[in-house]
Design a protein around this nucleic acid. Structure first.
Lengths: 172, 172
DNA sequence: ACGAATGTACAACGATCGTTTTACATTGCA
DNA sequence: TGCAATGTAAAACGATCGTTGTACATTCGT
């Protein structure tokens, strides 16, 4: 019941935006009364935070990989499943101007974890730490995600190819 | 008077989001009555479209360059002046789910122009067309813009360095 | 000097916002 | 069997939304 709410909320927030999605649309999609929604979620902002935390779990599980190439392969899968609408975390933070603490915190936690993971994958793939290279890979990942909004999923393969070149150069 | 409105609106939309910014906050910041705002702008959505068109002009003027390196130098200047809040175009489109025609159209026009410009710069710099390389440069640009939201302006120099490597490799 | 244009302040429009209240039905454990 | 717990529907809360109407002041070209 709680998971149905979270799933429905994620879909609506992702497709129409956090602010633009009213509570009545959430209750309708989740098939529950507003009373029950508030008992479960506390508030709309807490619901969004819950959505983000849940999405973070799903996303981070998908990028549990050992190579940079697999990182972008995972992103290809992700956009195939989730579509190309940019990063929900950055979008919801931007929508609220960072003024909603629950949301800002969930986003910060996710982006910290993501940054750490990229660093780890680059280190594993390369055999040594390389923070500068990791930052470039992160930029390619984020760029593929956002450019895909108007350029389509091809941006992910472009980023993948670019990352391969950077990795190859760092190895030799 | 119209330009003061547009400037004030851009600032508020950029910092707090399109939906979250009410008309009364716009009138207050622009120092005019709501009646006058609507005479000038027509509607809130049209005002946002005007803001985006104006921003497109300012942005495109800044990336009138001849080399890929200068492209990222221009982005460094841009984020120094405008801050790191991601791409206003993609954000406003996402906020409205693409359901507001005036906004969706302004965004589409800007992104088309931007994509074309990147292709031109890569071609000039390289001496020949290279659409695949241009796509990678575009991904780096977009990635620097969005990663900068949580990683800071350093992402731009990371992207700049990565682009230099890709360009060098394409030249030899 | 005068009428059109353009500005203002301000109340009000109906709609919708997030949230809570009221009153009632169903379930499950003691 | 009965009392919590948990659900429902529906109305209402005050606030705010984008937008418009009313009534009055200022500026400006002729």
């Amino acid at each position: 019941m709680t998971s149905k709410l979270t799933a429905a909320a994620e879909r609506l927030f992702d497709r129409h935006g956090y602010v633009a999605t009213g509570v009545d649309r959430l209750t309708e999609a989740a098939g529950m009364s507003s009373r029950t929604l508030y008992k479960h979620a506390g508030s709309k902002a807490e619901l969004m935070a819950r959505v983000l935390t849940e999405r973070d779990r799903r996303f981070m599980a998908r990028i549990e990989v050992r190579t940079v190439d697999a990182l972008f392969a995972a992103l290809e899968d992700w956009v195939r499943v989730e579509g190309c609408r940019g990063c929900l975390f950055l979008r919801s933070r931007a929508e609220t101007g960072g003024d909603t603490p629950e949301i800002a915190e969930a986003v910060a936690l996710h982006k910290e974890a993501f940054h750490r993971r990229v660093g780890e994958v680059v280190a594993m793939d390369l055999g040594r730490e390389d923070p500068a290279l990791a930052e470039q890979v992160l930029v390619l990942f984020e760029g593929a995600t956002h450019a895909a909004v108007y350029r389509g999923a091809q941006t992910v393969s472009a980023a993948r190819a670019a990352a391969a070149i950077l990795m190859e150069r760092a190895r030799s």
